[in-house]
Structures are given as structure tokens and as C-alpha cells.
């Protein structure tokens, strides 16, 4: 099958790749662009490990085709720390031990960042429902929720 040339922006940088029409955005990020921080846990939109934002909207990159990425603004976990400075969410995840194996972590961080962009002061229930599409099998979510709420508080204080 012939491949399609795609030009798009990932983490603020213009990139090009050749996508098989059947490749998902997740495949293209991981295999073509070597951005392996975004994970595949299911490829059916159920686990959230592949979470990225596309033009500011949180999506499962396993549910979007690579060829749909033309001329978009895509943000992945690799773009979350700026100039070597961790995002408050990243810092709080380490501080609260909100990761065990860490496999769900990139997707949860991307999803949590999208939440805080929409709602800087979420309550526990709002965090839990927002993250309901991101499975974590290790932590039981307790420390994840605490880390997100704590990061939100810090960001509000800093703002």
C-alpha cells in the first residue's frame, strides 16, 4: 500500500513522516517519529496510555489515523517539560509516588494537563471522572488523584 506524506507539528516542532493509511497516529508517533513516550496498552481506546492532545483536544492516539494528523498541533509527553524544567504535574507525580510501573504515567500526565487547562480547580470527583479513561493497574489511583490535586493547587498559587 502506498504511503502518504504528512507534515504536522509535534511539541511545537514541524515534522514530516510517511504514513501507511492504516497506521494510527500512535503508530506514527512511536515508529516514524521515535516518540516512544506515548504508550500502547490496548489500541481500542479503552486504556488511555496513548493520550495526546491534538489542537488542544485530548485524544486517544490509537483511535486516530496518522494521515489525519496533517497540519495539526500535537502535544505528547515528550513536550511536557519545558527547557528541562518539569511540569508541576510531573514533579508532583514523583513526589507523591503516583507511579509504580510508570506505564500509564505519560498518558495520565497528558490527560491531567488537559484537565487543568480546562478546569484549574477540579474537585476529587471531577479528577476521578476526567481520568476514568486512563487505566492504571498498579496504584489504585489514590496517589495519582492526590498528585493531580496538589499540582493544581500549586499551579493556582503560582498563577
Amino acid at each position: 500500500m502506498s504511503k502518504i506524506h504528512i507534515t504536522t507539528k509535534v511539541n511545537g516542532e514541524e515534522v514530516e513522516f510517511l504514513a501507511d493509511p492504516r497506521d494510527t497516529l500512535l503508530d506514527c508517533l512511536r515508529d516514524q517519529l521515535e516518540l516512544t513516550g506515548t504508550k500502547e496498552g490496548c489500541s481500542t481506546g479503552d486504556c488511555g496510555a496513548c493520550s495526546v492532545t491534538v489542537d488542544g483536544t485530548l485524544v486517544c492516539s490509537c483511535l486516530m489515523l496518522g494521515v489525519e494528523a496533517q497540519d495539526k498541533q500535537i502535544e505528547t509527553i515528550e513536550g511536557m517539560a519545558e527547557d528541562g524544567e518539569l511540569h508541576p504535574l510531573q514533579r508532583k507525580f514523583i513526589e507523591h509516588a503516583a507511579l509504580q510501573c510508570g506505564f500509564c504515567t505519560p498518558g495520565i500526565l497528558v490527560a491531567a494537563k488537559a484537565l487543568l487547562a480546562k478546569n484549574p480547580d477540579p474537585n476529587e470527583t471531577e479528577v476521578r471522572y476526567w481520568l476514568a479513561g486512563n487505566l492504571c493497574r498498579c496504584t489504585g489511583y489514590d496517589k495519582i488523584i492526590r498528585a493531580v490535586m496538589d499540582a493544581a493547587a500549586e499551579m493556582r498559587g503560582a498563577a
Binding site: 504508550k39 500502547e40 505528547t76 509527553i77 515528550e78 511536557m80 517539560a81 513526589e95
Partner: peptide, 21 residues
């Protein structure tokens, strides 16, 4: 005590390499 884990940075930045990476 509760120090930061040594592999924390790699795991919150997407740098840690798992099986498929």
C-alpha cells in the same frame, strides 16, 4: 523516609524504555 525514586524522571518524561520501545 520517602525520597524521590531514581527512575522517576525517566518515567514522567516518557524517556523510560519499556518492552515495545
Amino acid at each position: 523516609t520517602r525520597p524521590d525514586r531514581p527512575d522517576g524522571l525517566d518515567k514522567v518524561t516518557g524517556r523510560a524504555r519499556y518492552g515495545a520501545d
